[in-house]
């Protein structure tokens, strides 16, 4: 992340360290991950220890310290989705993408991850790609979804 871009984010929060979480969220949104160098700069500009920034950055699942793919796939493994075959959907996606859960494809197209219920159990098995929810999936349907994203 360029210095000027980070500066703009920091300014938005008036350089308040109490807004660290929001600052990191903005960096994550822009960069799709939290680069080490940027975190070090955040710590320096806010005059707070890097340990504190790192603690927060590793605590929340929204953050990633390694580059994420352009599209984030979240396979719901909550109870309802699980009994309706979410694991098979996950297995298919893992096989098609060639990554493990939590992994990112080499071309940075997808990151595959899992969640524990997103609150629309009647639609299970559910997969969320970016912000969009796809319900009542099976292996075939899930595999087809991937084609829509580049």
């Amino acid at each position: 992340m360029k210095k000027a871009q980070l500066e703009k984010i920091l300014k938005r929060y008036d350089y308040q360290d109490s807004d660290l979480l929001a600052i990191l969220q903005d960096v994550q949104t822009q960069e799709n991950y939290l680069p080490r160098k940027t975190l070090e700069e955040v710590a320096e500009r806010l005059a707070i220890p890097l340990a504190r920034v790192y603690k927060l950055a590793t605590f929340y699942r929204t953050f990633s310290l390694t580059p994420r793919g352009r599209h984030l796939i979240n396979v719901c493994l909550g109870t309802a989705c699980h009994v309706r075959g979410a694991t098979m959907v996950l297995e298919r996606l893992k096989r098609d993408l060639g990554v493990k859960a939590g992994g990112t494809t080499k071309d940075l197209r997808f990151t595959l991850d899992t969640v524990r219920c997103i609150g629309c159990c009647s639609l299970g098995p559910v997969v969320v790609i970016n912000e969009e929810i796809f319900g009542k999936l099976n292996q075939e349907k899930a595999a087809k979804l991937l084609k829509e994203y580049n």
Binding site: P49, A51, R52, T58, F59
Partner: peptide, 14 residues
């Protein structure tokens, strides 16, 4: 953090 003030370590992940 509180006594030394070095802030060299912290909890990581969860």
């Amino acid at each position: 953090r509180e006594v030394v003030g070095a802030d060299a370590i912290s909890f990581i992940s969860r």
